[in-house]
Design a protein around this nucleic acid. Structure first.
Length: 574
RNA sequence: UGGCCCUUCGUCCAAUGGCAGGACAGCAGACUUUGGAUCUGCGAAUGGUGGUUCGAAUCCACCAGGGCCAACCA
């Protein structure tokens, strides 16, 4: 036992201390005991069949964090084993997403580069009587597998001679058979209590163009055959995957042992990330895209890395969230609030404040000179954010305020504008509502106020307290813009928990995207670059959409996340 | 008539046989030119029953609840 002799390497000075978890502890133990006789090597093994989502960021943070903190390496390996579903566009998108998150892999590999090696291993298994070619059709193979409570039955081809198996496999590889004519199976136990071990399929024939192999190769490994052996070939020490692969660990270990690897990698499972009001499964996300329920993989409502990026979520927020959630073995579902907290917490310190009126109501300052325009200086950051910078806000007789900031008949605790009430216009003046103008249907269309000239900048020289401060923009100077208000994609916490006969799509939230085509943002944002991020004061965090098909050339701002709103909460209580 | 895994505040994660702790959420207050942020305080949990032990969230047994496995998907 050499437990005490080699302490784990110290963490880099400026790295935040990652939360402890059982995997980190295990790796530390393995490093201390020198178990693998080599440095830590992890891997991130996406299959290029879909874009990455925030669930992957949990795995990314874990795997990259381990490699970094224990002085090891990490491979990016595309587990590309199925020409029917894979696409080079996903390879590129996945690499972009990982880089955007701020991770750099040490080496890039493709399972499809191991096909020849896997073929050699298949030969080795056949020679040892550990694999055979099965010529049953798909249905027969399935029927022969039995069920969870009844053992399977042996294939009639199970006892083919080594020679016959070898010859058949060679012809399979040579392309002599159509898809599905034969498969290679491991020869284990058709009555095994773990169904995965009932002679699992290893290779199948697929005559389809592959984005890396072209048409030259037609023998494609299944996940179980490719994954563990790819790990072993690359010298991975710790192979981390999600809980649903627990049963696959038996075949993982069986194959790596039969193939003769000296210090095989160890598979360890942890619970996948689940978040309320969304789905995090490739297949479901793919359906949302292909069936047009969202605009694409980067739709800002999607929990994909691309969607979150466009929504305005930063890599730092995503990584902080992944760390906050922790790593454990219990199947868990995280509240959306935890994610939103990470997003706000990051953006709060990062982005400038700006004023934007989302639901405009005209306010006329009746005692303000018709032609006068004053330029009022306003800081970009509040006192508690250590950043500098100011801009000028033009103030004039006509301004826009938010409809929600006026109530004709307000409840007691409503601190905003109402007939006869005084509020502060942020960085502007104190104004008092005098008249409410309505149209024929009784809707409020305009508000008349008077202002107090002594309160320029929002100051109260007489020291009087004003409960409410509202945002506003000059009607003569503001920039018309489109604002897109995003909300949870699904209306129930677990979109899979729907009635019999329905699927998760029936739980889609019809109001997940509300487009407001006629908002007004302050002049200072004129010409800002797509990608610019702000806090629209009192409203939320927004990001100038990068590739919007803007309505009438207006800039489009995506709401990343709303501000916490204690007024909304107070209202609900009556 | 199976196998495997899981179960600690509302939620997520710690506590590695020795004072059940943190984060988010919640509540109350302070502060505030964002009903934001910040600060202070409060409430809040070991699924059940037995057993082992001086001592059990932790070990054992049984029960209950939840999850995964019967794709030529990953």
């Amino acid at each position: 036992m050499s437990q005490d002799k080699t302490p784990p390497p110290p963490l880099p000075d400026n790295a935040p201390t990652p939360r402890p978890n059982f995997i980190r502890e295990m790796v530390a133990d393995d490093v201390a005991s020198g178990r693998f006789g080599r440095s830590v090597c992890t891997r991130f093994p996406p299959s290029p069949t879909a874009s990455l989502h925030i669930g992957h960021s949990k795995s990314l943070v874990l795997n990259f964090g381990l490699a970094r903190d224990f002085g090891g390496r990490i491979n990016l390996r595309f587990d590309d084993t199925n020409p029917f579903t894979e696409d080079i566009k996903y390879v590129n998108a996945i690499k972009d997403d990982i880089r955007w998150l701020g991770f750099e892999w040490d080496a890039e590999f493709y399972a499809s580069d191991y096909f020849e090696r896997l073929y050699e291993i298949a030969l080795h298994l056949i020679r040892g009587g550990k694999a055979y070619v099965d010529s049953q059709d798909e249905e027969a193979i399935r029927a022969g597998r039995g069920t969870v409570t009844t053992p399977g039955t042996n294939s009639p081809d199970r006892d083919r001679s080594v020679e016959e198996n070898l010859a058949l496999l060679a012809r399979m590889k040579a392309g002599e058979f159509p898809d599905g004519a034969h498969v290679l199976r491991a020869r284990i136990d058709m009555a095994h209590p773990n169904m995965i071990m009932r002679d699992p399929l290893l290779l199948r024939i697929r005559h389809a163009p592959h984005y890396r192999r072209g048409n030259a190769w037609c023998l494609y490994p299944l996940y179980d055959f490719a994954h563990g052996l790819s790990d072993a070939i690359e010298g991975i020490t710790h192979s981390l995957c999600t809980l649903e692969f627990k049963d696959n660990r038996d075949i993982y270990e069986w194959l790596v042992r039969e193939a003769g690897f000296e210090t095989p990698p160890e598979q360890t499972e942890f619970a996948r990330l689940q978040i309320d009001y969304t789905v995090l499964s490739k297949r479901k996300l793919l359906r949302l895209v292909t069936e047009g329920h969202v605009a694409g993989w980067d739709d800002p409502r999607m929990p994909t890395i691309a969607g979150l990026r466009r929504r305005g979520v930063t890599p730092e927020a995503i990584k902080q969230f992944a760390d906050d959630v922790g790593v454990a073995r219990s199947d868990a579902r995280t509240e959306l609030a935890k994610f939103e907290h990470a997003v706000r917490d990051d953006l709060n310190m990062r982005v400038p404040r700006v004023l934007c009126v989302v639901k405009p109501l005209k306010l006329v300052v009746t005692n303000y000179p018709e032609e006068l325009v004053e330029e009022l200086e306003a800081p970009y950051y509040p006192h508690d954010v250590p950043k500098e910078g100011t801009r000028l806000l033009p103030f004039c007789r006509e301004i826009w305020i938010d409809r929600d900031d006026f109530m004709e008949d307000p409840p007691k605790k409503f601190f905003r504008l109402a007939p006869g009430r005084e509020v502060r216009l942020r960085y502007g003046y104190l104004v008092t509502a005098t008249d409410v103008i309505k149209d024929a249907s009784g809707e409020v269309v305009e508000l008349h106020c008077t202002y107090d000239p002594a309160t320029k900048g929002g100051n109260t020289p007489d020291g009087r307290k004003v409960q409410g401060t509202i945002h506003w923009v000059s009607a003569r100077h503001a920039i018309a813009c489109e604002v897109r208000l995003y909300d949870r994609l699904f209306s129930i916490p677990d979109p899979d928990a729907v009635d019999e006969g329905k699927d998760f799509l029936s739980a889609l939230n019809p109001d997940s995207q509300v487009v407001v085509p006629n908002a007004y943002v302050e002049r200072s944002t004129a010409g800002d670059a797509p990608g610019s991020a702000y806090q629209f004061e009192r409203t939320g965090y927004f990001k100038h959409d990068v590739d919007a098909s803007a309505t009438a050339g207006k800039p489009v701002y995506n709401r990343t996340v709303s501000l916490r709103d204690s007024w909304e909460k107070a209202k609900g209580k009556g």
